[in-house]
């Protein structure tokens, strides 16, 4: 029996298998599902209720409703990043070598890994939707579909970024350092936790150069579009991103995310393709 020469169908099966492995591992680790929800829940309920009483409501709309889509985005982003961490684990425990010596394209491995991590992240983000009624955010079927679609786009881009970072890092410790110095600043500067209008100049600049900003904003915009948000509340709890005085459309925001994805996907493939 001789193994067939490389065919595209085999690359597709490879992607599917790598993707499936991520899901099997996710399903086997129920504890992780709960522990990774603990942080967003703390933010949502403790920060959300705490700040709401300080900030007060505007025309019946309060801070925790503003915060909710941001926290969903945060959940997706951190799950996606920590799914990518498994590449470092795979390297530490040798499984990466098993994948890298296989007669398949590196890009198929990165696609499978990225889609696997992204699926897991979108699942986690969607689980967060369960808490929407407690916050007073109204869910409709079209809204949930829109949110899931946006979660997928966002998580694919972020997982590709995470795989790139992981491909350049040899040890688990290094990954944690990078995440502390990259992930948390990016999350805090993304507008997930506060409106992006009326900020001091330096903060305005930092939030606008942060690619995550353009991933978080669309999610909030579709959630807001499905709520009754009075104009006076929409002005105070702005969901918009303005760059040089222009309000960005949801499509241009997504365009930034797609470019971000493409850059880091190519860098991730390159990072895994090096021979000593």
């Amino acid at each position: 029996m001789r193994v067939a020469s490389p065919k595209f169908s085999n690359e597709l099966r490879t992607m599917a298998m790598v993707w499936q492995r991520e899901l099997i591992r996710f399903g086997r680790n129920r504890l992780r599902i709960f522990t990774s929800l603990s942080q967003p829940l703390l933010f949502l309920f403790v920060l959300g209720y705490g700040m709401s009483s300080l900030v007060g409501a505007t025309a019946g709309f309060d801070f925790k409703k503003f915060l909710f889509p941001g926290i969903v985005a945060m959940t997706v982003v951190s799950t996606a990043i920590f799914s990518a961490i498994s590449i470092v684990w795979d390297r530490e425990f040798g499984f990466l070598r098993e994948m890298l010596v296989a007669p398949v394209r590196r890009s198929s491995l990165v696609v499978g890994k990225t889609l696997g991590g992204a699926t897991v992240a979108a699942l986690q983000g969607t689980i967060m939707l369960v808490f929407a009624p407690l916050i007073g955010v109204r869910l409709t079927v079209p809204l949930v579909l829109q949110v899931v679609a946006l979660e997928l786009v966002m998580s694919i881009a972020i997982t590709a970024f995470g795989v790139f970072v992981a491909s350049r890092i040899a040890r688990i410790e290094g990954f944690q350092v990078v995440m502390q110095l990259v992930l948390f600043p990016m999350l805090f500067l993304s507008g997930a936790l506060f409106p992006l209008e009326g900020l001091p100049g330096w903060l305005t600049v930092l939030t606008r150069v942060n690619p995550l900003t353009y991933a978080v904003a669309p999610l909030r915009q579709v959630v807001f579009a499905a709520q009754h948000v009075p104009p006076i509340a929409a002005a105070r709890f702005s969901s918009q991103v303005t760059v040089f005085g222009h309000v960005l459309s949801i499509w241009s925001e997504l365009g930034v995310v797609v470019v971000f994805f493409m850059v880091f996907f190519l860098l991730a493939v390159q990072g895994l393709s090096k021979r000593q």
Binding site: V3, P6, M17, R21, R97, P103
Partner: peptide
Amino acid sequence: GLVFQEETLDDQLTAEENLRFHAVLYGL
């Protein structure tokens, strides 16, 4: 076929899943 010095199995998968993963990547 390769057997490295260090272990290269995914120990959160079953034996059969590890083999299936390999079989798919090698185009069986």
